[in-house]
């Protein structure tokens, strides 16, 4: 039982690194924060709002995302995010690294 907390913390660390990759992968077409959250959740990637929004801001400040405010329906302004050219280049590299990493780890764990 006492290992539960340890496992939770390690899981958190594992997830933290992969979240950027997950977010970048889903922003090929533009989304606002809440729709992105639902898209991630639908595919099994649960993420807290308090994690997602700061992450979006950070990725944008790094030049990997672009965003703008738009009023699409119901007169509610929403901030739409989409991957930038630099983000695409980074994502391609990250994808390659990710598959190498998962392959290695899977081999090790089997």
């Amino acid at each position: 039982m006492e290992n539960d907390e340890l496992v939770q913390n390690m899981l958190l660390e594992l997830r933290r690194g992969s979240l950027s990759l997950a977010v970048l992968s889903q922003l090929g077409k533009e989304q606002y924060g809440y729709s992105l959250l639902k898209a991630l959740s639908d595919q099994g990637m649960e993420i807290d709002q308090s994690t997602l929004y700061p992450l979006l801001r950070r990725l944008e400040s790094q030049g990997l995302l672009q965003s703008d405010w738009r009023i699409v329906d119901e007169a509610r302004p929403r901030r739409y995010y989409v991957i930038s050219a630099q983000g695409k280049a980074v994502l391609t590299k990250l994808k390659r690294e990710w598959s190498v990493m998962t392959e290695t780890i899977t081999k090790m764990l089997s």
Partner: peptide, 17 residues
């Protein structure tokens, strides 16, 4: 910078939810 932006986005998200 962008405190107003954060607030605006938060409100929009909460309304959606």
């Amino acid at each position: 910078k962008g405190r107003a932006d954060v607030e605006k986005e938060l409100k929009s998200t909460l309304e959606d939810m």
